[in-house]
């Protein structure tokens, strides 16, 4: 491992711990009450959901509308596991999470292999359909608790555990997306034909991205199940998938830091708007439209926020020679790749 990389990792790790320490202190000081902590637990879950969807939508460049379906598979797997086999404590919780992820990933492969050859909007509508089928089937069968939902899932609301599971998940997703596998996935977003003729196995990498995405959605689902204790298939309808998609798009498709940021903001802000509960969803949807009109590439575009870049800039300012940039983010162009050329090659522009 090169030296400057090691420094970057250490800085990032210390920042994650620092943020955790701040939250813990605020909680201990009584500034963050139980209500705030419950919102922050939701934040950890939504961060995993948004970053995992970012892999398919932002990095692979395929629009999917069934993310909540994979979340529900994870939630039910963890719920049923905890109720029927049930291992105690944090290790049991983590095993449940892993199982939930694996099971969701299994569904991801099974659904991804046939549907990923569809393009653009067709893929969007088919993934929406799969999400709905999963929902209907969960309600139909009895072992899932049927339409009444699954009750009495052991609660696990330990913020420390949830925080570090989220941090680890994001770190793992980010690392793989900046490895050769992630580059292959990005190349499919950029130009599928060029990718194929550069030797990339497009089918394989599409499936890999979709599977990874489902795996982490499953983990988030499991955390959700343990967080609220009662789940119903109705919680995982297409509206939920839309919510997650909105987080990814607002943050900037393809940007992990953007997804983390917007998942945080979009979880906290609606809660703040609760005082205006009646108008909350109206404001929310208006904001969505306005942001799309005025900043369609999302808040961060494709940029990633790197703390090391900030440090280098500061060093430069104070006269020290900066080390080579650790990672080079692509130019923050408008997300024009999602243009209209994917499913039909119509000439556009008036």
């Amino acid at each position: 491992m090169p030296r400057e990389k090691r420094i970057t990792y250490l800085i990032n790790l210390s920042l994650i711990i620092l943020l955790f320490a701040i939250i813990t202190i605020l909680e201990a000081a009584g500034i963050f009450a139980g209500y705030m902590m419950s919102i922050l637990r939701l934040v950890t879950i939504n961060i995993i959901l948004a970053t995992s969807l970012n892999i398919t939508v932002g990095n692979l460049g395929q629009i999917t509308l069934g993310h909540a379906g994979f979340m529900s598979i994870g939630a039910y797997t963890a719920g049923l596991f905890a109720k029927n086999i049930g291992l105690a404590g944090v290790p049991g919780y983590l095993i449940g999470l892993l199982l939930a992820g694996l099971f969701a990933a299994l569904f991801g492969v099974a659904i991804g292999v046939p549907v990923l050859r569809l393009r653009g909007d067709y893929l969007a509508i088919v993934t929406l359909a799969f999400g709905e089928i999963i929902r209907v089937l969960i309600e139909y069968f009895d072992f899932t608790g049927g339409a009444q939902g699954l009750n009495g899932i052991p609660r696990m609301q330990n913020f420390t555990v949830m925080y570090f599971v989220a941090a680890l998940s994001v770190a793992l997703m980010y690392s793989i997306m900046t490895s050769r596998h992630g580059r292959a996935i990005l190349s499919i977003r950029e130009d599928e034909i060029a990718s194929e003729s550069s030797g990339i196995n497009v089918t394989f990498y599409k499936t890999m991205a979709f599977t990874l995405s489902s795996f982490f959605a499953g983990i988030a689902g499991a955390m959700h199940a343990h967080n609220i204790g009662t789940i119903g298939a109705g919680d995982f309808g297409y509206n939920r998938s839309f919510d997650i998609l909105v987080m990814v798009v607002l943050g900037g498709m393809g940007s992990f830091t953007g997804a983390v940021l917007s998942a945080t903001v979009l979880t906290i802000v609606p809660e703040m708007l609760r005082e205006f509960a009646d108008y909350r969803m109206i404001i929310y949807s208006l904001l969505l439209i306005i942001i799309m009109i005025f900043r369609p590439e999302g808040l961060l575009g494709r940029k990633e926020f790197h703390i090391t870049n900030v440090i280098n800039r500061l060093k430069k300012k104070f006269g020290k020679s900066p080390p080579k940039p650790v990672s080079v983010s692509p130019k923050p162009d408008a997300a024009e790749k999602f243009d209209r050329t994917d499913s039909s090659s119509k000439g556009r522009g008036t």
């Binding site: 629009i63 839309f242 998609l245 929310y284 208006l286 969505l288 799309m292 024009e336 790749k337």
Partner: peptide
């Protein structure tokens, strides 16, 4: 109309936004 030349996914999100609105 303001999104005529925007990426396709922005149009999709806007449509979802209008629907929610």
């Amino acid at each position: 109309k303001p999104l005529r030349n925007s990426p396709r996914i922005s149009n999709l999100i806007t449509a979802i936004g209008v629907s929610l609105l």
